[in-house]
């Protein structure tokens, strides 16, 4: 809209509005960035430096906190566990949601719309209210303290979001493509594997990104389902920093920085997909 309003000469009211506008924008930018900047800066400082001058910069660039975090918390193991869990749940989630999305967007049968509505309404359920049944299921089926329990759970929790996104995406693929392929002798499975699945890559990427961020960041179920280091994810590992003998704040900061990098990296690369996924109105929970 009128971009050169400001150049029309000085108007005190407009200037006040302009100031308020930029103050608001910058305030929320500061909220979004400064706490994490503070975290990164202090991850290079010693605990003594932090406690005596919380605002300062490190006296010298030292990676000691990162080394300590890696050794005391077995960070490599925790990160590997998180990678396995996130990758496993994204793959499982996309297999389930793309197969169902194919049917829900392509085939007509009784109850199809009801199934879609019920599944997508799953976002309305507060998952934390399922702590008791999930814990019972995990222990009863012998999956306690095993990464697979987290893979299944995260993949399942993201089903409503993924089914909604992927089905909506697949609906937009023109039917003519498949009709042509059917005439050429393509069967049901080939229509899925050779046409719809490849054409849905963009929708699958959006759904997969949401699932990855969820799985990478999840804490409650990880706390509930695992107990030993062998199946501990990075989020849980950060928490265990504070329950050790000495409160090593800057060491914990280093671990947090490492835990943030993958999700921030994914966001930097795929932020367009994430934002379009949100604004499609498809993901509201």
């Amino acid at each position: 809209m009128s971009k050169n309003r400001a150049e029309k000469g000085f108007n005190p009211k407009a200037a006040a509005f302009g100031f308020m506008k930029w103050f608001t924008l910058l305030f929320f930018l500061a909220i979004a960035i400064l706490p994490f900047l503070w975290l990164v800066v202090n991850s290079f400082r010693t605990n003594l430096e932090l406690e005596t001058a919380p605002f300062g910069f490190p006296a010298r660039l030292s990676f000691e906190n990162y080394r300590n975090a890696a050794v005391t918390a077995d960070l490599a193991r925790l990160l590997l566990n998180s990678v396995i869990v996130a990758a496993g749940s994204v793959i499982l989630n996309l297999v389930i949601a793309s197969m169902a999305g194919f049917i829900l967007s392509r085939e007509k049968f009784r109850g199809r719309d009801a199934i879609f509505t019920i599944v997508t309404a799953g976002v309305l359920i507060p998952i934390i209210s399922f702590m008791v049944p999930y814990f019972w299921m995990v222990t009863t089926f012998g999956l306690y303290d095993k990464l697979v329990s987290l893979i299944f759970t995260y993949a399942a929790i993201n089903i409503p979001v993924s089914v909604s996104l992927i089905t909506t995406f697949m609906r937009a693929i023109p039917k003519e493509l498949e009709e042509a392929a059917t005439i050429d002798g393509c069967g049901f499975n080939q229509r899925f594997a050779k046409i719809i699945f490849p054409l849905s890559r963009s929708g699958l990427a959006t759904a997969g990104t949401f699932c990855f961020i969820y799985a990478w960041n999840e804490f409650v179920m990880a706390m509930l389902f695992t107990s030993s280091v062998k199946s501990r994810t990075i989020q849980l590992g950060i928490r265990f920093f504070t329950s050790q003998f000495i409160t090593d704040n800057t060491g914990m900061f280093a671990a947090i920085v490492l835990s943030i990098i993958p999700s921030v990296l994914v966001y930097v690369i795929l932020h367009d997909k994430i934002i379009s996924g949100l604004t499609a109105g498809a993901v509201k929970g």
Binding site: P35, N217, I238, S263, V264
Partner: peptide, 14 residues
């Protein structure tokens, strides 16, 4: 939107 992709654990600890 950036803080929304950062884990609650990290934000809570910070």
């Amino acid at each position: 939107f950036l803080p929304n992709v950062i884990s609650t654990v990290a934000i809570a600890k910070v």
